[in-house]
Amino acid sequence: MTLTVRDFRAADAESVAAARRSAFPYLVTTPRTVVWAVESAPVARHYRLLVAEADGEVVGASEVGVFHDSDEPGLAFANTTVSARARGRGAGSALVTAAEEYLAGLGTAKVFAWTLDEPGAVTFAERRGYRRGRASRVQRLDLTAAALPPLNAGGLPDGVELRTAADFADDPRPLYEADVECTRDEPGDVATTRPPYAEWLAATWEHPALDRELTSVAVVDGAVASYSVAHTDGRGRYWSGMTGTLRAFRGRGLAKLAKNDSLHRARSAGCREAFTGNDGDNEPMLAINKWFGYEPAHMEWRYVRELSA
């Protein structure tokens, strides 16, 4: 077998998307999102998408870059995926080695990587010197059978309206302000700074998987208070990109209202499966998703390695 690691080409998009779906079937991944990630990455992220080619066929990929928006310098990521049928043939090791060499050349101190909670994946990471960090719990809801709460049963609370992201097409800045605040409050390994509005537009608002008609927004007296982001892949899969409530409006059930509205919209649009991922310490969202009927599907671990070691 001839194995080569090289930079991504647009013609590789379908193979990379297929490899990711085989390893992470719950993610919204399409050839378009693969190409978009490469073309739209900020220069400061030093983003590269490396692919492993075995006998002329792309069998895996590693997305590599630095957390340019982190409060702490020297932090990077390298998330590697190998097609299920091609594992055990050296592609993963070759990709990780190439990724680490690239990041070391940038002066990176730590590299973070997501790993499925599977014996082979965990052993692979730990043998390469990675240590386990935070857990992320992926949950699934069967939209074809789910008993979602009725829409707006008893009417909405006084002053509350439900809108969609599409209603903010002319001026999405209120959604930007809400997303910045809520994202800062999410538990995680890497604290980030406030992104410039233009960068948020490119990375979040223009994301090709974002479904603005299915993304629901709870507005209180005209102000954005809570929202639930929907990503879809055109294959019946729905991923909750983010559900958040601004601090001033928490404790009023608005996240449930927004997410319930989004899930109903998704089912009406033909989505069959809804997935979401939550940090293992995010008890409020874990409780909300359990209330909706989500069931555990997978668990991932965030691994980290000191490159200087």
Rank of each mutant, 00 (worst) to 15 (best):
E101Y: 01
E101L: 04
V38C: 10
A98V: 02
A91I: 03
A99D: 07
G129L: 09
V66K: 00
P73E: 12
L75T: 03
D71M: 06
P42S: 08
E101A: 13
R87K: 09
E39K: 10
V122P: 07
A121D: 15
R89S: 08
S83M: 07
A84P: 11
F124D: 10
T115E: 11
G90S: 10
W114M: 13
L50K: 05
H68P: 05
R131I: 13
E100S: 04
R131C: 12
H68Q: 14
A94M: 08
L116F: 07
G107T: 06
A44N: 11
A44I: 00
V35A: 15
A54N: 12
L95D: 04
V64F: 00
G74L: 02
A99Q: 06
V59D: 02
L50D: 09
V82T: 10
G120P: 04
R87Y: 03
E57F: 03
G107V: 08
G74C: 06
V43L: 14
L103N: 02
G65N: 04
E53L: 09
V66H: 05
T123N: 12
A113Q: 09
V59C: 02
S62F: 00
P73I: 03
R131F: 11
A99G: 11
F124M: 10
F124R: 08
L103I: 00
E118R: 14
G60S: 07
A121E: 14
R48M: 04
H68C: 11
S40V: 11
F77K: 01
L106H: 05
N79Y: 12
V58P: 00
G60H: 00
F77L: 09
S40P: 02
V66G: 07
V66P: 04
G92T: 07
V59N: 02
A78D: 12
